[in-house]
Amino acid sequence: MKALTHTDFNFPGQKSVYHGKVRDVYNINDELMVMVATDRISAFDVILPKGIPFKGQVLNQIAATFLDATSDIVPNWKLATPDPMVTVGLKCEGFRVEMIIRGYLTGSAWREYQNGCRELCGVKLPEGMKENQKFPTPIITPTTKADAGHDENISKEEIIAQGLVSKEDYELMEKYTYALFARGTEMAAEKGLILVDTKYEFGKKDGKVYLIDEIHTPDSSRYFYADGYQEKFEKGEPQKQLSKEFVRQWLIDHNFMGKEGQQVPEMTDEYVNSVSDRYIELYEHIVGQKFNKADNHDDLAARIEKNVTEYLNQK
């Protein structure tokens, strides 16, 4: 099985390209974005040395499903998916803030809580909470969007005071974030899953706020299985989850947290394939359909180039 870890396309009308941690984004005439979901995988803000076969297809197709399923809540950037690993959409000016919303105390928030933190991004946290406990109501804990390195926690008040986002736009993003999370929670519950936390990114085009990037994928979200949640919570046992947290946990178990001087553990073919299987499992659970693997035995880049070029030439 092949994995796509690098792209270097030259599409019709291409003006520039941005290589992110996982996605490569091509600017077409300052009007469209071609977003290629590669098979790269990152954790602790580090791109791991091996790609995960079918991961890009999984992420792209989950995101497309949820963008379509939430377009009645908020306008979004998506126009088409001309290839299993590609979404083409409107080019928006992205806000330099990520809207993270949490329904449960887990992950980095729990790690901070354990260290005595009782306020996260300006939000007061109740005393006496346990790991994986549900918040009385979901909380929004935004971060600044870093070009490189770590994203930083920030409060609503700081975002507005620093002029990162206007008060009006921020409050609209906040409203959209709660509504998207409520829809994602409903859709997850229908499949026997709990949407634990997630992040949304927004941008602006012609004065209008749009939802951009991916939503409700295992790279941007954490899911627990609903079955057994309460029993595991009461016993203080780890939850069975579908998210990238299992990769982070594997790295932590091998003494890697992205800190200086730490070595990424060896990713054997067996481990890589197990991660691929977990991504496919999430797709099938959250979308509720069998995952159809796109042909990846030939040149993945050539397939993408052909499909995207054909789409752009029809525009």
Rank of each mutant, 00 (worst) to 15 (best):
I28N: 08
C92Y: 05
A43S: 15
P265L: 11
G192N: 01
K91T: 03
L59F: 08
N307H: 14
L300I: 15
T198S: 13
P75L: 11
N27C: 11
L79F: 12
W110K: 00
S274F: 02
T87D: 01
T5A: 08
Y26Q: 12
N153T: 10
D197L: 11
A226G: 00
I154L: 07
P136M: 07
R23Y: 13
S243P: 01
F256R: 06
T185D: 15
D299H: 05
F95P: 04
G107S: 14
R40I: 05
S274R: 13
P138W: 01
T177P: 07
I194T: 03
Q57K: 06
Y271H: 10
G107C: 15
K134L: 11
F256D: 01
G184N: 12
A148M: 03
Y113A: 07
P126I: 01
V25S: 15
D295C: 02
L211D: 00
Y113I: 10
K240E: 14
N132F: 09
Y178R: 05
E270N: 08
E281Q: 12
S276L: 03
N255Q: 12
Q133G: 13
T81K: 11
A161T: 07
L59G: 06
S42V: 10
E284K: 14
K55P: 08
A109M: 14
V58E: 08
Q162K: 15
N273G: 00
I73K: 08
I252Y: 02
L242R: 05
Y279L: 03
V25T: 15
L180N: 02
E231T: 13
A226M: 05
D68C: 12
A294E: 09
G261R: 07
Q262D: 04
T143A: 08
F233D: 01
L164V: 00
A302Y: 02
K306P: 02
H150R: 13
I252W: 03
G192Y: 01
E260N: 11
I212F: 06
K204A: 04
F54K: 05
D72E: 13
D151I: 04
Q61M: 11
I252M: 13
D39R: 11
G184R: 09
P49V: 10
L120G: 01
M35C: 13
F54G: 00
V123K: 11
Q289S: 12
K293A: 14
L125D: 03
V36Q: 12
F246N: 10
F246Q: 11
I159L: 10
V287H: 01
L172M: 14
